[in-house]
Design a protein around this nucleic acid. Structure first.
Ligand SMILES: [Zn+2]
Ligand SMILES: [Zn+2]
Ligand SMILES: [Zn+2]
Ligand SMILES: [Zn+2]
Lengths: 130, 130
DNA sequence: CTCAACCATGTTATATTATTACATAACGTT
DNA sequence: AACGTTATGTAATAATATAACATGGTTGAG
């Protein structure tokens, strides 16, 4: 079990909240959102988040300590993700990473690293805000 | 003042500790390192860190909440940085980013973003560990 | 079946990271 | 000197994350 689907109860609850959100959610915000569903304490949330990240269902935006649902399907394989983050409206968008991923993995080869995954965060202004 | 060089006293102290370290330093570890120099409380450290990051003298490794001195000079201009992080020995190396930087900024253009900076973290095994 | 191993869950407490808020001092300009 | 601005000092607290331990369910070997 737990290799692909078959989420546990708490994982389902947490994933559901994240998927329904239009913005990255922080752990304690998730917690307060799921208190009514019987999740009472931080470890329950963090455990679910860890597993969901492992599975590639969600990503952590490191610069914000926040989590978003995966917006494409590549990540389930590559565990690598790229985001654009608008510094004005705070919008976070996952970049379809097939091209960038190829480039970056060849780059990793070049510098002699045995590459497993990467995290890329772009900051600037989105189409609307620029 | 404070546009390029001319660091303040606390900024100098903090930068010095970071430059002398062989590994990324966390804020509270910096704090305990500089207590003897008269820096007593978190805000003093965090304020210095913020400014040093702004100036491009140091970078924050977001996935570790830790700080390293800039290892190349491009960053003072571009405010963008890329790192390889070994998951075995924890070594963090700044990647000379001129090539990668060109590629990524053209990519940002393509997706319609007015790009200011980026943060890229590679995870895997370094030359020694692979 | 039964018990042992494993995994998910629940709960309390605590550790770690970061900021708010306010007070004081130093500095440059007029 | 009087003022605005920036740097500093300090105490308190907020926000993020983990440790440690207890309980409960499922499964599969014997
Ligand atoms: Zn994804
Ligand atoms: Zn925007
Ligand atoms: Zn740099
Ligand atoms: Zn290594």
């Amino acid at each position: 079990m737990q290799r692909q689907q078959n989420l546990t109860k708490n994982q389902k609850i947490v994933l559901d909240v994240i998927e329904k959100s239009t913005e990255p959610l922080k752990a304690y915000s998730i917690l307060s959102n799921v208190k009514k569903k019987g999740i009472n304490a931080p470890p329950q949330v963090y455990r679910a988040l860890d597993k969901l990240v492992d599975m590639g269902k969600i990503h952590k935006i490191e610069s914000k300590n926040a989590f978003v649902a995966c917006q494409n399907s590549n990540c389930k394989v590559s565990k690598a993700a790229a985001f654009s983050i608008c510094e004005s409206c705070e919008e976070v968008t996952e970049i379809d990473n097939s091209k960038i991923s190829k480039y970056l993995s060849s780059f990793a080869d070049k510098i002699g690293m045995k590459y497993k995954k990467y995290n890329l965060e772009f900051f600037g202004l989105c189409k609307k805000c620029k």
